[in-house]
Design a binder for these strands. Structure first.
Lengths: 182, 182
DNA sequence: CCGATATATATCAACTCTATATATGACGGA
DNA sequence: TCCGTCATATATAGAGTTGATATATATCGG
């Protein structure tokens, strides 16, 4: 998934700023299945503008820096919708948490319990946030995707709660030497 | 998650090649929560060797190119275990499939149904592969992580089966103009 | 005053992916 | 026979992305 596609997707819903695109892709409604950072968003927007897929204008603001608002063109909208007909690439999933769990036998029980509980709390937060988002959106496909995400998050959370005693039991008792720099 | 960490993790289980590290991180037991490609694995291994965390030797082979086998050093093993005490970064998840589902209102029912069915089949494949992996591994934490992954995959698959009629119903009837280059 | 936070744009160095090259070999189809 | 595909192997260049940082205005709390 490239950042130009992410920008076009978000811009189909209305004009906005590079800052907002980054915010939505890391914290908002798009954050559950995509991500992009400033270093890639601005160059992507520039390129999309060169290619005629978006246009922009600068808007002055009181008490804040002026902002550059981007809009998708009809050409850009067509290009984006057409891209949805392409074969889909595989999902990308990376988890330091699961890597951590693969080495619990080398780690103290207290740390493992701490990390599992932190993860459960993160699941709780995510579920609450998805419920909030569900109240803000009315487009049916958006709601479907949010409910799907909520269902997956609930499943993961439940498994962690039901099975956390098993993974904690695999960890070391507290005589494991703590790392020096801790 | 950086590729040096991935290499060290895999090498804690025994010496192997850059090719094998890439294979395990994209198709094997590590594939469900991490990924790395040749362009980053070889430079990472070189760097790790410079830093004294791994060593390597070249092994000639009949009928195949010779291979370079890497082993983790005790310093490398200690460094890796210590890194597990660090704060965990957030999971990364990106899905073109979910982006696609967010725009079904612009797409024909046949395409949406095709893509959802493909996804369900991918879930089935993944579940079968995880079951195979479960038979190969004996380390308890590895089994725990595989079972967690299987549970999550089953939950996603079930939701797709139960709710696919809803998302397909949102799509367009077949009079949507197909893209020209199709 | 400083750090944290928020809204904004922008960019650099480090990192990673994708594509490609090279090598040996096997297999199947035209 | 040749070509494409696949597998085991190493390696790298160019394109793309991340994380950190810089700049600007403003607010809040210690």
């Amino acid at each position: 998934m490239n950042v130009k596609t992410i920008c076009l997707a978000i811009l189909t819903q209305g004009e906005t700023t590079g800052y907002d695109i980054r915010k939505r892709s890391t914290e908002g409604d798009y954050a559950y299945f995509m991500e992009a950072s400033f270093g890639s968003i601005y160059p992507a927007l520039s390129k999309l503008e060169e290619e005629g897929y978006v246009t922009s204008r600068t808007v002055a603001q009181e008490g804040k820096p002026s902002k550059r608002v981007y809009q998708i063109t009809e050409t850009g909208r067509t290009f984006f919708i057409n891209s949805l007909y392409d074969e889909l690439n595989d999902d990308v999933f990376r988890s330091e948490f699961l890597l951590f769990l693969r080495f619990v036998e080398d780690l103290p029980k207290s740390l493992v319990e701490k990390r599992v509980n932190e993860r459960i709390a993160k699941c709780d937060d995510a579920i609450e946030n998805i419920k909030k988002l569900e109240k803000e959106f009315t487009k049916p496909s958006e709601l479907w995707v949010l409910k799907f995400g909520q269902h997956c998050m609930r499943g993961a959370r439940q498994y962690l709660i039901d099975h956390k005693h098993e993974i904690i039991a695999l960890a070391q008792d507290e005589n494991v030497p703590k790392r020096a720099a801790e």
